[in-house]
Design a protein around this nucleic acid. Structure first.
Lengths: 119, 119
DNA sequence: TAATGTCAACGAAGTGTTTCGTAGATCTGC
DNA sequence: GCAGATCTACGAAACACTTCGTTGACATTA
């Protein structure tokens, strides 16, 4: 299932901080009204993007899928649609858009090394 | 200005093949009706995503911005929303999603080198 | 000139996304 | 128990996106 932009921001919070109530997520986002966040999370529950524990009054929501899995299928779409399938073009864009630090750059080189070994 | 998914596919065609008529773009896409493509391109003209030469009967459309520039600002959004600002997480997803060849991998290393030099 | 084909323009319908107001249930402190 | 606070649920409104039917202008050909 595909997440919308606002839904991605909620998933960010859940991945980073673990299962949360609507209020906690809402405060982490720091924007919009409470019921807006609630409505989004209800829709996400219907889509299967999150799971819910409703055994307490304040229901607790958690991500339904692993971060890597969702980001991976998101990038499949983006690669084709926006970058014509070129991972190099995407990397170029990421460098322009993210301006990574030297540390991050080193981590990225390591990823390339690891990927090469796996081939 | 931000492009929608269908608009990105049109921009792909224009970047790859240069300025085109609506019919040429429509046939390159190979999907949907002609008027759908036309309408999209009219909207894109309004948004400033494409430029138009209407001196001939079949108007000729070209991209308004460089590919790198548009993809870069797209990734600014995606990095924050979907990847929490981590370019390394994005690269990891891209490697999994695109499975680049050895040649592409070498090109990606070159991009990292060039970026580092510019810093 | 008349028939046929191609084109841009426009509007509208259908769907998806985001936001928020309101209602009703449940809890807490007095 | 009652008042106030907090919660879920629901529906509606506003906007964006995609698709396509129709119209009128223009060109081609017979």
């Amino acid at each position: 299932m595909k997440a919308t932009p606002a839904e991605w921001e909620i998933l960010q919070v859940l991945w980073k901080r673990g299962p949360q109530t609507v209020r906690e997520v809402h405060e982490a986002l720091g924007a919009g009204g409470y019921t807006t966040t609630l409505k989004l999370m209800q829709i996400m529950l219907g889509k299967g993007l999150v799971v819910r524990d409703d055994s307490t009054r304040a229901h607790v929501f958690g991500p339904a899928m692993a971060r890597e899995q969702m980001q991976g299928s998101f990038l499949e779409d983006v690669l084709r649609r926006v970058f014509g399938g070129s991972a190099a073009a995407l990397l170029q864009g990421a460098l322009n858009g993210a301006k990574p630090s030297a540390d991050e750059l080193a981590a990225m080189r390591r990823l390339l090394d690891e990927y090469e070994e796996r081939q």
